[in-house]
Design a protein around this nucleic acid. Structure first.
Lengths: 341, 341
DNA sequence: ACGGAATATGTAAAGGTTTACACAACATGG
DNA sequence: CCATGTTGTGTAAACCTTTACATATTCCGT
């Protein structure tokens, strides 16, 4: 019993006095075996401590019960909570997850492609634009896949993301409600889908409040803290100062806050600032950052359940799932100071 | 060639005009096959795009090339960088990693134990005290394992951690060098190894400077932000105020800073504060937190390489690897104010 | 009571790999 | 030139599971 080698289905069959086929059926199609038999088998399983050898099973079935999650950066604070969502959902459907990170290295990506080709994963969860998918040959063999945050190719692969437009709209609406009319938008790269969508939310919000767009206070950058700080510097060299900064992400917002504080301004007394993402440190900033929270765990959950659906049906129910992000009100926003209003 | 089903060893054998055994040998024991044959096989592999079916291989070999990493909390900011270290090392030795998190739930832990029993992982990386390892029967079947941060059982399983004593010593030495003599120690639970070790570093540092221990300024807590804040409150109810707070971890230090700021004190003007861990937000605090940095990536790397060694040799070269953490000097420490010195 | 369906179980093949063993070819030393 | 060793390759078994097919049993309606 406390043998060193794990029990096989044969051990169970011998003890239950049935064939191995019956044991397999008792486990996977319980309704197909007689009650009495099922009982015997279950007892034998309890005695032996038998667990199905996943490798043999996968080999026979031609697919594994593992799902590969490939992300560019495991250390990204956005990642871990999504992972939790992914993992919970996967486990509850009998799948395990396997994590790979490419560090944006094409070589790495290729390795994972190989991995997939050797049938080691039944499905793939793909974070924003990672794999060197130029290779048409490779993509042909890709297992069922789901993207996270942004669509992966032109076609085919469904994805789960966040409704950036609606999220950005919440931020800009808050600022407008507080009385701001001159709201700067500090973005990252125009090549990024998130930028364009959040910008659309920003534009729509201004439009709805009949505030004309002012391109002098709209910036591009690269989404880093430094890029936020730089945007502030540039703004102060011009003549049109905003009363609020709406930032494309929290990193940028943090940079903006640093820049403003370095110039001796008070937040939110002199300027209001909003972010997007709600990274962990947002709450530790002083003032704590008002931002739009990515529903990370939910994103993970949805992405995985979409993939699992794909795995069984073959057809995606929908090709795009956009989750609604929440506004998290903290202390970086207030009414504009009379002086500069 | 661009077939939908992946190529098998048989396809390669047919094209190279050899037996499948030779193909296998050409791959895994290249020195055992003739040069000419190896060439033919390699060409055939290139043509077919063959990759070994990992499941079949694992089944045959009786072990997988996957390593399970079990952690209580994937979202822990300490975790991701360790993961990077683990993953890099694993991949470079042909292993993949597989992540499970228990969320401190015994049921979850049990599931992973089952997983291990079904031979799905060749080895195990275990973060601080996670699995419900009371079950002696279970532990008997555990694959080669390595702990991270703290030893897992009484015996047997080697681990990789950080030299807490030396790390704490660096912090206390810095404070002493700055001129502090009344240094509070804000700990978490005495049941935790890290607490005891860091406390030892603290004691040793005071001792070396011939400063008598003052138990009125030594606290226990639970390692959370709130617990740090609470310690400050308690201190102010007594009469013996320190000039510096040495905290068992960054969370506690953050709490201490919040508590002190809430009372209107300036850091480091009125009080100096040190942490331990260097969590990501440490640098974003104001003032930024002087702390002891966990060499996270290195910890991951060492843990994995120890495990891989175990996997091949069976015997651990050493049973404990302690890495030296670095002091990260930021802005939360200065000389004590004259008034309270 | 009989034919046929429904139910329950067993037999055996297949999935892709590694490796013990067998065998062939060839080299070496006497 | 034979005995022996070395080198390279092939054959076939084994790893553990699932499932198509065959077989045996039971049940039902007529």
């Amino acid at each position: 019993m406390s043998n060193s080698t794990p029990a096989t289905i044969e051990d169970v069959a011998r003890i239950a006095n049935v064939s191995i086929a019956t044991v397999s059926r008792a486990i996977h199609m319980p309704e197909k075996v007689a009650n009495s038999t099922r009982l015997k088998v279950n007892q034998a399983i309890a005695i032996t401590g038998y667990t199905t050898n996943a490798m043999a099973r996968s080999l026979r079935l031609g697919r594994s019960n593992m799902i590969l999650v490939v992300a560019p950066d495991i250390g990204d604070p956005n990642f871990s909570n999504i992972l939790i969502g992914l993992e919970n959902e996967a486990r509850s459907h009998g799948y395990g997850i396997l994590i790979g990170h490419t560090q944006n290295d094409a070589q790495r990506g290729l390795e994972y492609l190989k991995f997939l080709n050797s049938n080691q994963a039944a499905g793939l969860i793909l974070f924003t634009g990672i794999l060197p998918f130029g290779h048409q040959t490779m993509t042909a063999r890709l297992p069922p896949s789901v993207g996270v945050f942004e669509p992966v190719f032109n076609g085919g692969i469904p994805y789960v993301g966040v409704d950036d437009i609606a999220g950005a709209r919440k931020a800009v609406d808050l600022l407008i409600a507080e009385g701001h009319r001159k709201i700067a938008f500090i973005g990252d790269s125009r090549t990024r889908l998130a930028y364009n969508r959040r910008r659309m939310g920003y534009d729509a919000g201004l439009d709805a409040a009949h505030i004309g767009a002012d391109l002098r206070i709209v910036f591009e950058g690269d989404g880093t803290i430094e890029s936020g700080r730089l945007a502030v510097e540039q703004l102060f060299m011009r003549d049109t100062l905003p009363t609020a900064f709406m930032c494309v992400n929290d990193q940028t917002a943090i940079g903006v806050m640093i820049g403003l504080k370095a110039r001796g301004y008070d937040i939110p007394g002199d300027f209001s600032v909003t972010g997007f993402d709600d990274v962990p440190q947002a709450v530790f900033m002083s003032p704590s950052l008002t931002t739009i929270r990515q529903p990370r765990t939910a994103i993970g959950k949805h992405a995985m359940s979409l993939l699992i659906e794909l795995l069984s049906d073959g057809q995606p129910a929908e090709t795009e799932i956009l989750l609604l992000p929440d506004l998290v009100v903290r202390n970086s926003v207030s009414a504009p100071s009379r002086a500069r209003r």
